[in-house]
């Protein structure tokens, strides 16, 4: 086989796998949104854009959209700020640094259900350690999953706890690529530690920061398992975002077309957001 034929055969295989695993499911999901179906075995009826019109006219959709933004923004801000902070600490030289670095990644390695159950035990009304601490401090008990604000705070807290180590590890790796001579030059140039962070560390981390924020935003906007396991979108829809709404609509209400419409809108929002994001923060390709 000539080298050109080899190249094309690999290219074709790659495209075929992409089509099979990505394009086909997306196309199928989008196509579902144009039909009325109450199950995957019944006969679908083409309804055009009716599912979109119906979902967009319901306030639960807009509430889920806003909840999605609150959840994504909250988790990203805390994950990035804490992730950079921890990375800066773990980048220092101190006794037992390697052990602490190893431990810091642990929450990310645990299955989501373990993290969620651990948190539920921690806030259990009678035996939870957080409940006891709050009581010992003389503070009023927190209704972790009963009040809308506390429920959203809980899902954000657990998500931050679980995925900050990923951000920390990524930033720690990036920090180690910053030449120490830049910090030394900045010291000679008269900077203090804060100035060095803003003038050296942050600009040097910018390429990785751009990617991390984007990845976390996409993952968090679509995050299903943590919220489902903690609150199932409750109380009264306070933590229900588009992914949960789509699931409930399709498999709770047996409105597969409506669920697919929500998922398609979510996909479109993310696509537009990614496009705008890369226009605002282009990756350095020089």
């Amino acid at each position: 086989m000539s080298s050109k034929a080899t190249i094309y055969s690999f290219l074709f295989m790659g495209l075929a796998v992409t089509a099979l695993l990505i394009v086909a499911p997306v196309a199928y999901a989008v196509s579902l949104s144009f039909y009325q179906m109450d199950s995957f075995v019944g006969a679908p009826r083409f309804v055009g854009l009716d599912n979109y019109a119906r979902m967009l006219s319901q306030w639960v959709f807009w509430r889920a959209l806003i909840n999605g933004f609150i959840y994504s923004l909250g988790t990203i801000v805390f994950q990035v700020v804490l992730g950079i902070g921890f990375a800066l600490v773990l980048n220092q030289v101190f006794p037992g640094r390697n052990i602490v670095r190893g431990l810091s990644i642990l929450p990310y390695l645990l299955p989501t259900v373990v993290v969620v159950l651990t948190f539920k035990w921690m806030v259990d009304g009678s035996i939870g350690v957080l409940t006891k601490v709050i009581a010992a401090l003389g503070l009023p008990p927190v209704q972790w999953f009963e009040s809308p604000g506390a429920a959203m705070a809980s899902v954000i807290l657990v998500s931050v706890w679980m995925w900050t180590p990923f951000v920390t590890t990524t930033f720690l790796a990036a920090l180690q690529t910053v030449p120490s001579s830049l910090y030394e030059a900045a010291k000679v140039d008269g900077t203090n530690a804060v100035q060095r962070f803003f003038h050296i560390t942050l600009p040097m981390l910018k390429p990785i920061l751009t990617v991390i924020v984007l990845l976390r935003a996409v993952w968090m906007f679509n995050k299903f398992d943590v919220i489902w396991l903690l609150t199932q979108g409750g109380p009264v829809g306070a933590t229900e975002h588009l992914a949960i709404l789509s699931y409930k609509q399709a498999f709770g209400q047996f409105d597969i077309g409506g669920g697919a419409a929500v998922a398609t809108i979510s996909f479109a929002i993310l696509s537009v957001a990614v496009f705008i994001y890369f226009r605002l923060f282009p990756l350095d390709t020089e």
């Binding site: 030449p179 001579s181 830049l182 030059a185 600009p203 040097m204």
Partner: peptide, 12 residues
């Protein structure tokens, strides 16, 4: 003032 072996210029 110091001049470093690898220049240590701020790349950004």
């Amino acid at each position: 003032a110091m001049v470093f072996q690898n220049y240590a210029l701020y790349p950004h």
